[in-house]
Amino acid sequence: MSLNGGPGTPTRPQAKPARTIPVALFVIALIVVAGAAVAVTSVLYTPKPASTPGDLTVTDDLGRTVQVPRDPARVVVLGPSIVDSMYRLGLRSHIVGVDCYAAAFGGLTADYSSDQIALWNLSQSMCVQTEPTFDFEAMINETPALVLATTIVSVSAVEMISSTYNIPVVMLQPATLGGIEVDVSLLGTIFGLDSNATAINQQLQVELGEATTVATNLTNSGATFPTVLVTYSTDSNGYWTFGPGTFGESLIELADATNIASNSTLPYPELPGEVVLVDNPTFVIYGLGFGLNLASYQSAPFWSELNATQNGHLYGMDSNYLTEPDPTMILEGLPELIALFHPGVTL
């Protein structure tokens, strides 16, 4: 039996499109509301002119040419390494906002250690959320005249800040340790603090020079450089570490030691446990902070078999010293490592 009508079945009259008018009205209302929102937004936020007389033209670490105001009073800084340089230059009061994660992801503590937050007097109210999504409103709310950013900020966000909101963005992401001095100089130029920048760079030169002297003396005396594993995380397979081209490795080499991961093909490899045991480093440096402590590393493969463990050559170090290319890395991290690797040497 068919449920459909047969040839002789009377057809149902077609329903009239009675909803056309309400739908049309709804669409018109949507357009009006959207237009009004755009108009209100443009009134509330008026972009500043692209440049004003007296602006500086600088080239940042990504090779971008940027027009920046001289000595801007309100600066948003997106990256702990830049905050470090600003603080050492005496520019803390210029910082009105810093990068952070969403509150549920840890807020400031997701990117800044508790020591840094205390030292630099950072507070949650300065939080400009960069992860998991960039909060442009929070940044604009700080009315910055300049944004200084590392590459934790995506290219699309940089474009948005500089093009749409017309706020100059200077990217400070040195590729080498030498680049730290360049960035300090650049900040000195922007804020009219060239002499402060020169003083900091001279300190950096002194530290680097002393490290070279230590290396020369060790080489001349026939001493061998200790082998080192620097790990910032472990799991049941092995040790996450710094490979070639990373600041972590540069720091180890500057501290006159040999990185056991220097032959890796990856910048941040996970060395299998058995490779670490065969290389058997003299020292193991493990990253601290961000919820990590010695216990976090003790279940790593062959941990108890390593010479470093058996000889007590395990050393916890603030992860920021190993990962953030800033003056603190050289002025505090480097001497700490040299003192550890070469205890008889005084700088």
């Binding site: 992801f105 799991d235 049941s236 446990g273 493969p301």
Partner: peptide, 21 residues
């Protein structure tokens, strides 16, 4: 995991399976 990105990463690795333990 949404509110624990570090744990999320660890779980991701665990999900890939391994004989390390």
């Amino acid at each position: 995991l949404l509110y624990n990105p570090i744990a999320s990463l660890q779980v991701d690795f665990w999900l890939l399976g391994g004989l390390g333990s």
